[in-house]
């Protein structure tokens, strides 16, 4: 039988594709499966350049920092917290674009459960903070 993404991931990607807000979608293993154009604008990279990618790979690609400028470990990222704890999480952090610009963002990550409670992955909506 052919492989197919779960319906929840398909619909999450469709939603992200239609949103003006930046949105990032990972599967249950943490593999990046999609981020949308508003996310590309903030991250400075296109999904075609980065994904699909394993968690370690995408996490390092965006040079995440705390708001004070300390490098964030993989375990501290909102999406990995949502994946691990299977709970929503909100956090302010910074990302580094390929040109070296540091952008402050706020991110809300949440786990994705299918109707019968199958854990399918997580998504994060994020936006750039003024100033």
């Amino acid at each position: 039988m052919q492989q197919q993404k779960s319906l929840v991931l398909i619909l999450a990607r469709d939603l992200a594709d239609k949103l003006a807000s930046a949105m990032f979608v990972v599967d249950a293993d943490g593999t990046l499966v999609y981020f949308n154009e508003p996310a590309e604008r903030i991250l400075g990279r296109s999904f075609a350049d980065v994904g699909p990618a394993a968690m370690q790979e995408w996490a390092s690609a965006f040079g995440p920092l705390t708001v004070e400028g300390r490098p964030l470990t993989l375990d501290e990222l909102p999406l990995t917290v949502a994946l691990r704890e299977r709970q929503p999480v909100h956090k302010q952090l910074a990302v580094t674009t390929p040109s070296g610009e540091v952008r402050q963002i706020a991110a809300t990550a949440f786990p994705l459960f299918a109707r019968t409670d199958e854990f399918e992955g997580a998504a994060a909506v994020f936006w750039e903070l003024e100033g």
Binding site: Q2, Q3, Q4, K5, L7, I10, D14
Partner: peptide, 22 residues
């Protein structure tokens, strides 16, 4: 096809693909 152009997405992103394939 809700919200998707079936001609432009890869098949594994299509609802029902695995059920129907072949």
């Amino acid at each position: 096809a809700l919200g998707v152009d079936l001609r432009s997405v890869t098949p594994d992103w299509v609802s029902g693909y695995a059920l129907a394939y072949g």
